[in-house]
Simulated assay, not measured.
Amino acid sequence: MKKIIGLLSFAFLVLSSCSSDNDESSNLPNPILVKEIAVNDEGKIYINTNTYDGNKIKSITSQRGYVMNYTYTGDVITKTEDIDFQRGVTSVYEYTYKDGKLFSVLKSVVYDYYLKPQYENLKKYTHNEDGTVSYQFYKVNMVTGAEEGFGEISGKLTFKNGNIVREDWSDGSYIYEYDNKNSIYKNVLGFNLLLNTDSSPNNLLKSISIYNNYVNDPVTYQYEYNSDDYPVKLNAGVINGMTFPEVKYTY
Rank of each mutant, 00 (worst) to 15 (best):
N187G: 14
E177T: 15
D198N: 14
I32M: 09
I239N: 11
Y125L: 04
N163F: 04
N202R: 08
K35W: 05
V215I: 09
G65T: 08
D23Q: 13
K124I: 07
T78S: 07
V89M: 05
L15K: 08
D228E: 14
D21L: 11
S183W: 05
N22L: 15
Y214Q: 10
S20Y: 07
Y225I: 02
E42T: 06
N187D: 15
T197R: 01
V14C: 10
E120F: 13
Q136N: 05
D228L: 14
M1E: 10
D179H: 05
P231G: 04
V34A: 09
V105C: 10
V165D: 03
T132H: 01
D99C: 00
D53K: 12
N202E: 12
T250W: 01
Y97G: 03
T220G: 07
V247W: 05
D179N: 13
N213C: 04
I210V: 15
P201K: 08
S227L: 14
V165A: 05
T243F: 01
H127V: 10
S183R: 00
N196D: 13
V143Y: 04
K107N: 15
Y52L: 08
T73V: 13
D23A: 09
S20Q: 08
R64D: 01
E246T: 11
Y113H: 13
K44R: 13
K181E: 13
S199V: 04
Y214N: 13
I208M: 08
G43H: 03
T49M: 04
D228W: 05
G74Q: 06
K233E: 07
Y93H: 11
V232R: 00
